[in-house]
Amino acid sequence: MIDKTIDSAAQAVSCIGDGAVVMIGGFGEVGSPVELIHALIDQGTRDLTAINNNTGNGEVGLAALIGNGQVAKMICSYPRSSHSKVFPELYRAGEIELELVPQGTLAERIRAGGAGIPAFFTPTAVGTPLAEGKEVRELEGRTYVMEPWLKADFALVKCDSADRMGNLTYHQTARNFAPLMCMAAATTIVQACRVVEAGAIDPEHVVTPGIFVDRIVEVAEPVQESRLIAEGRSYP
């Protein structure tokens, strides 16, 4: 019987080794799989390339992973926020590499990675420093820049409901990058607010079909980053 559920976040991330490329869902704290990230911190995996829209907040979740020196390279669109201090300090000290990608190009590169499309042409960033050195082409009278797909060894995402087959639903704007990252990673690891019986999710309402999901751990009451930060908490 297919059953992708796993007992703990620690077991779920145990397959991630040093040097892995890891996509991490979330837009700011919304949709961030904080418990999976904390399990990765506990595990001490190093030299990671992390792909996320941002670089985390405070000293918890993604920011804590970065602050713990486990991330060698960050691929993101917006490494600044009102509560982001860990990344800027390491970046200014030259201790972490940054690949800055426009947000829509980041999303499409991940989608392309999951869909088996090795590159595509986009008008985004033409004429700016972010297109320098990239192949350009004139198509129907407009200039486009070629962008490569983005794939990962692992994706860590948070969802609302999951069943044992890996079918997922999301809540409000927490969906953001998760469905794309589930497609683009060799192994997708999901933390679900609830695991339900197969068939309990109406097939019409499935957002991520189970084929894109490998491991599921139930985290019934996930922490909220902003609450941890307000309480002055840091991880570990």
Binding site: S77, Y78, P88, P102, T124, A125, L130
Partner: peptide
Amino acid sequence: GAIPAVGGAMDLVAG
């Protein structure tokens, strides 16, 4: 020393 942060701005002006 500036932290570059582009977000969706380049996609918006292109599209």
